[in-house]
Design a protein around this nucleic acid. Sequence first.
DNA 1: GCCGTTTTCGGCCCGACTGTTTTCAGTCG
Length: 576
Amino acid sequence: MENAEIAQVLNQVADILELLGENQFRVGAYRRAAQEIESLPQDINELYKQGKLDEIPGVGKSITQKIEELIKTGRLKELERLKKKIPLSLTKLLQIEGLGPKTVIFLYKKFKVTNLSQLKKLLRSHKLLQYKGFKEKTEENIWRGIKLYEKHKERFLLGRAYILAQQMVESLKNFKEVERVELAGSVRRMKETIGDLDILVTSKKPSKVMDYFVSLPQVEEIEAKGRTKTTVILKIGIENDLRVVSPDCFGAALYYFTGSKAHNIRVRRIALEKGLKINEYGVFRIKDNKKIAGKEEREVFEAVGLKWIPPELREDRGEIEAALEGKLPKLVKLKDIKGDLHLHTNWSDGAHTIEEMVKKAIEKKYEYLAITDHASPMGIIQGIAGKRALEQLREIKRIRKKYKNKIKLLSGVEVDILPDGRLYLPDEILKKLDIVIAAVHFNFRMSEKKMTQRIIKAIKNPWVKIIAHPTGRIIGKREGYPLDMEEIFSACQKYHTYLELNAFWNRLDLNDIHCRMAKEKGIKIVINTDSHNKMEMDNMKFGVGQARRGWLEKRDVLNTLPWEKFKKELNLKIKI
DNA sequence: GCCGTTTTCGGCCCGACTGTTTTCAGTCG
């Protein structure tokens, strides 16, 4: 069983225990363990073999046994037992905004509600109104939660949420009563999926800001409106929280609302050990309630003896320990990126010409770029197979010459890896190109062993420099194909092939955890946008965000190298 | 259920908002 599967089982146990009214800390312990396992930078099966399960934070004797049982048998008797008490389907109802464990269990016990359609039927009958604590408004709220749930079962992808968040921030900046505005929450942490938007402002007139905020055209519905906190649902279906605080607590509030929850809990615990209390208004000494920090985020960290931690790291995945020891990584930045090596043009399925892509890269002050159109047996893509590859090469050389003083234009291809691991273009063509990217685009359903062998065969090809979107996932749509990443990393190291972090926000593949695994193995990553038009080249920030979440530093990313070093590293023979 | 530079027992992060209350429970982040 994989890390994510084991984490899921533990979360299910937590959900049922919570519904049963179990001790909340016991519930929390399962959640914590699940979270730790999900973000583990190693395969949990390896830890098991080494007898090191209990070294995972939050995993003690009891959960160790449960993980062992899951690894050995694929099942957990405890969960089977719990499922007899309460159907697992109830845990789905918990995902409806406004429905918590108390209400869900009440609906189950009184009305045998176990799923959404039964819940709707009950609401329509208005039978709930006879019970204490339930009035029309309660029914309305549950309907609203159901509507939101049906509209958006999945979390929003970062790319979409980011643009909307920027719009809301800009609108707030334009309002005269607003002083400071900052984006917080999971968008600030550049998480690949976003639950809601969190925006923080300072103002002397909070109620005016709240009135202005709820009147913005993007707002569909007001869920809660108070003096310091307002929650609205935007037309697109995402929730947006706005918090207004005074300037002297801005740093504390920014820290607090950036999260993640797991990170905040850990840091507050450390604060408590030092006799300090952290809340959204500041850091306070418990004995006399004196405020010792809060204006700037950095102060909050320093007050509890930590170095400032970049938002992307705040997941309680070891960043707190690293900050305590002064061993935080110096994360790669967007401005460190010197080139983009995976770009499509109208020679295959891209929208723009080679020259238009080159101009955009010059605008971005890149030192180099590679044109890598598809060469694929798939009919839908009119690619650059055969003679067309050589034609395009001539065109690239022409444009290379034209812009040689501004940017280094490299020739390339994104060639398909066939099911048996051979490539769609012969070596005679590949060897004429500067950057050969290989990728899997079809026949995804293979066993882990076969898929791993398929990709390793491509890695071994001496002309292949990069494996694009290595796991093939499309976030929210398609699981990545199963791969033995350890073997892939070893092969990359042996054959000097690089793995891509595809910056397109519905891929972000490799993900943060894989990036961190790669870093630990000493493998460099290349961050590419895989742009199919020139605007998409701006997606680089999402790739860098994911790389930062994976603890990558400048030296871990191939395309941070300046041209001469890059050329040497890849052993490129061209003269420009 | 986990954890320990005060502790192997007794803690476990903290506050805002809503709805239905007349002092609070439930939910959320």
